[in-house]
Computed example of a mutant assay.
Amino acid sequence: MSTGQVHPDQHPIDDDLVRRLIAGQFPQWTELTVERFPSGGTVNAMYRLGDAMVVRLPLVKGGAKDVSTEQEWLPRLVSRLPTAIPEVLGVGKPAEGYPWPWSVYRWLPGENPEAGALSEPVLLAKDLAGFVAAMRSITLPGAPEAYRGGPVASLDASTRAAIEELRGIPQEGVDCDAATAVWEDALRAPGWDGPPVWLHADLMPGNLLVDSGRLTAVIDFGCMGVGDPACDLFPAWNLLPAEAREVFRETLGVDDATWNRGRGRTLSQALIALPYYRRTNPAMAHNARHVIRAVLGES
């Protein structure tokens, strides 16, 4: 859970604002309780609405487009995926001084998995591979381009800048030379030469829900779209231990080039996140450190 303001330009959101928005646009739900839900997410605030719903509101302007993407595409994906995904129950509009669209979803039960504390890591790896494979099999036309879905080289400048920033934070203990070597290996890997595939594109532990160790739901589809299949390999390093990582790879049948790109992309995200969130979002910073250890421990 964030302990303070994560982004310098985020919009203030509190219980009273959410109550006013609900009363003005969904009066049938006015009597339901509104309570902030603690989340390690960085783009949206979440509020429980009664027992069966959740309100999700962008904290920053960049999240507004994600809301519209979910509202358009989630109803079309639900029947094509093996796990539960968010169901849009209400489409909120700017009001009460709040400037962006927002959504009301059905509440999905479950807990976020925690790297290093998985009760069924191999089974979870198979569940994740099944979800990724189902996403890739979707053939809906008119898909948006996935966030981060382009060539690995498009991340080069920001990744190298993050590595240099981490050189100036020795207390984090990142082996920046080793990180650079892994990153350059990803840059050398052949690019994806097939058609772009459907991706969730943000398979972080905070966007997964599990029960008894098994995957029950995937949430936060704001980055979804089509692109390089390597973009959905993130759980291999941000969640799964080594044995389960190999099961994930084998179940998906990932070739060496795609695996190297996926590892580089996952490392890049972690390297960029760590200096940005290390003082504002403990969950994101903790996972970034885990990814860096997991990736560099393989090399």
Rank of each mutant, 00 (worst) to 15 (best):
A52G: 11
M53E: 07
P58D: 04
L59S: 09
L59H: 09
G63L: 07
A64I: 06
K65F: 07
S68E: 13
T69L: 13
E70D: 08
E72W: 10
W73A: 05
L74P: 03
P75A: 01
L77R: 06
L77E: 06
R80K: 08
R80G: 05
L81W: 00
P82V: 01
P82M: 03
P82F: 00
P86F: 04
E87G: 02
V88A: 05
L89S: 03
L89V: 04
G90Y: 00
V91D: 08
P94K: 05
P94C: 08
A95C: 07
E96D: 11
G97W: 09
G97H: 09
Y98C: 02
P101I: 00
W102F: 04
S103I: 05
S103R: 08
S103N: 08
W107I: 01
L108W: 06
L108P: 05
P109G: 10
G110K: 09
N112P: 14
N112A: 15
N112Q: 15
E114P: 11
A115R: 14
A115T: 14
A115G: 15
G116F: 13
A117M: 12
L118I: 10
E120Q: 15
V122H: 11
L124V: 09
K126P: 11
L128V: 10
A129Y: 03
F131K: 00
F131D: 00
A133F: 10
A134H: 03
M135G: 10
I138D: 01
T139M: 11
L140I: 08
L140H: 04
A146M: 05
A146C: 04
R148T: 12
R148C: 12
R148F: 14
G149I: 01
P151I: 01
S154W: 10
L155Q: 14
L155H: 13
A157R: 13
R160Y: 05
A162Q: 00
